[in-house]
Nucleic acid binder design. Sequence first.
DNA 1: CGGGATCCCGGGAGATACTG
DNA 2: CAGTATCTCCCGGGATCCCG
Lengths: 120, 120
Amino acid sequence: MGKNVVVNGKMYACTISLAMDIVGGKWKTVILHHLKSGEKRYNELRKEIPAITEMTLSLQLKQLEENGLVNRVVYGDKPPIKVVYNLTEFGRTFIPALEAIDQWGILVADKIGEPVQENI
Amino acid sequence: MGKNVVVNGKMYACTISLAMDIVGGKWKTVILHHLKSGEKRYNELRKEIPAITEMTLSLQLKQLEENGLVNRVVYGDKPPIKVVYNLTEFGRTFIPALEAIDQWGILVADKIGEPVQENI
DNA sequence: CGGGATCCCGGGAGATACTG
DNA sequence: CAGTATCTCCCGGGATCCCG
């Protein structure tokens, strides 16, 4: 039932745990979801994910980049510089799973979520 | 881009973070994956997921049960008792996402995983 | 057999302030 | 503009032992 796999020196008993080790955590899937629609600048991501802190956002982006899911492109060498993030080809292979998770989240929200005003 | 949702008093900025809050973590998707094929006893799960500790397994099962994904059925009242876990109807709604994650994990393993002997 | 109690640790994540 | 540098807190998860 799922063969053992070794990736980057770490051993996984099944492919599910491998996948969750790469895209698990509180923010990674959220970031990937926001990059699905196209490239985004750092501050765009911050505004679209208000609950994340600067430090956590840049840390998660770095980890996604290290795992080859996200590409980081820098424009300019003197401040103000411009940095753009987008999904790599490998990152895009995760989109089907991402959408399946999103669909399930929508189902859960419809089923047991309480409605909330958009604006205060 | 994804409306705010409140579930169990917690607020989520998008459905992805809601989903990850329910099935995230190191073990929940792995457990659900092993329950996909049918009901399992506690010790069956332990043997199929050797890397998990007893305490963590029972804790994760309890949380899955609290969120309505897993059903726990007890047979007998004097030790040795028999406890069986299976997916609820709601838990089964997560299977498509689970399989999408699994497929992606397989893809990752094929792409960057190193092969490993099954037996020592 | 299927857990609970207890103790513990590492790292994920936040708050605040600062910088090339 | 796009981050770092610290410091801190919290808690998911592990280790060990025990129990109905």
